[in-house]
């Protein structure tokens, strides 16, 4: 057991500050353990959101020494023995209290995406897919909706005014998941990503990928492929020529 120095942001939408604590740390603990110890000893009213303590519910997103991460997955032994550990709420969303923020932005963006649309003539129970065809979409199903990618993306983190026009990386993987899905019959997902979700705001600087606790290759496997699919439709010279020579329905049937 050692005593470590912590700074935790305390406050609400009226303001707040980093508050200093000296707190006991034991071997094998994670930052969330320390936050819980603070609640149990010095700060019973410290607000924190958590559920599983196993990196699977996506509730405990915060920033630790300035790096967005899950409190329950950040091990204390990753810090130097005398290093002060600073814990702050995620920056991009409105603060409620202490480490808890209001992430409803993300649920609003989620609701705007047209739902999975199987072919009209298929009844539930008749869906048949091959593994190779769903593999890419499955990577994106690993998402635990911690919204760390949304929080870190500079498009909205540093530019509040872009929130209306930009859905964010978590919803680009949803767009890609559906566009690549073998049984999704909608044909306008690329246009939706470009025009309604603000795919063009992303400058592929990969911070979403860097912070994703599920190690989803958000930029390489979802965002860039979606940008390329938009190019297929809008800017590619050979596809354009192909459309002129062949009929569009024949091209589309190649899917």
């Amino acid at each position: 057991m050692t005593t470590r120095h912590f700074r935790v942001w305390r406050g609400d939408d009226q303001g707040g500050a980093l508050t200093d604590y000296d707190v006991e740390v034991n071997e094998g603990e994670v930052v969330l353990d320390i936050v819980h110890r603070l609640q149990a000893t010095q700060a019973p009213d410290l607000a924190v959101r958590w559920n599983c303590k196993a990196g699977k519910c996506g509730s405990c997103s915060a920033e630790i020494n300035g790096k967005p991460g899950l409190l329950c997955m950040t091990r204390m032994n990753t810090f130097g023995p005398d290093e002060t550990v600073t814990v702050t709420p995620v920056r991009t969303f409105p603060v409620m209290r202490d480490l808890v923020t209001d992430v409803s932005f993300n649920y609003e963006k989620a609701r705007e995406i047209p739902a999975f649309a199987p072919p009209a003539d298929l009844k539930p129970g008749e869906y048949r897919m091959q593994q190779v065809d769903v593999e890419r979409s499955q990577e994106f199903r690993k998402c635990i909706e911690c919204f760390l990618c949304q929080n870190t993306c500079h498009v909205i983190r540093d530019h509040e005014e872009n929130k209306a026009a930009f859905a964010g990386p978590r919803f680009f993987i949803r767009a890609a998941e559906l566009d690549m899905h073998p049984l999704d019959a909608r044909d306008d997902r690329k246009e939706f990503a470009q025009e309604e979700q603000g795919l063009g705001f992303c400058n592929i600087t990969k911070c979403c990928t860097e912070v994703c606790p599920e190690h989803i290759k958000i930029t390489d496997n979802a965002i860039i492929p979606m940008k390329e699919r938009v190019v297929d439709r809008k800017y590619d010279p050979l596809t354009w020529l192909g459309r002129k020579i062949f009929r569009r329905d024949q091209l589309e049937s190649q899917k």
Partner: peptide
């Protein structure tokens, strides 16, 4: 279907430091 801001943005946590990253 773009989200229209219904209310002015609510305040974020007031953190003075522009970044708290301590690594290089």
């Amino acid at each position: 279907m773009t989200t229209t801001a219904t209310t002015p943005p609510r305040p974020r946590a007031a953190i003075a430091e522009r970044t708290l990253r301590t690594d290089r």
